[in-house]
């Protein structure tokens, strides 16, 4: 995959900026959203390979966003990140077919490895 694309959803500007710079440096096509609602609009407009979303956000949280995304993009890998990890939310993520669950604060290189592992494989794309 030459230029994989990612949509980062977080209500914290600092996280959005950090991940925007990082993924851009890695050669990714990156879009950012500050809310679940904005993320859904972007998904209608752009082809996205991986969705990376914060869990706790005002209005639509990461799990609700995942539920909405599943309706229109059932195969899109969703990675949850959270500064408030709990067994309950991790189990809920597992049951909602979330691809990964990453706790904050994270090492950005570790996060990158996890996100990259969920990119669709070339043979899946052409299948």
């Amino acid at each position: 995959m030459e230029h994989p694309s990612i949509l980062v959803v977080d209500d914290e500007l600092l996280i959005r900026d950090l991940l925007y710079d990082f993924f851009q440096d890695q050669g990714w096509d990156i879009a950012v959203a500050e809310s679940g609602e904005q993320a859904l609009e972007i998904l209608q407009e752009k082809k996205i390979d991986v969705l990376l979303t914060d869990l706790r956000m005002p209005a639509m949280d990461g799990m609700a966003l995942t539920g909405q995304v599943r309706k229109n993009f059932p195969c899109l890998p969703v990675v949850i990140m959270t500064g408030y990890p709990s067994v309950e939310s991790a189990v809920s993520a597992l049951r909602n077919k979330v691809a990964d669950y990453i706790t904050k604060p994270f090492n950005v290189n570790e996060l990158y490895k996890r996100v990259e592992s969920h990119l669709p494989r070339e043979d899946e794309e052409t299948a």
Binding site: S86, V87, A90, V91, L94, V98, D100
Partner: peptide, 20 residues
Amino acid sequence: CPTVKSVIKAMRRGACDFVV
């Protein structure tokens, strides 16, 4: 004995559910 780490490990290793 559930922990966040064990749920994440189960998820990454291919489990589809986790019950306590």
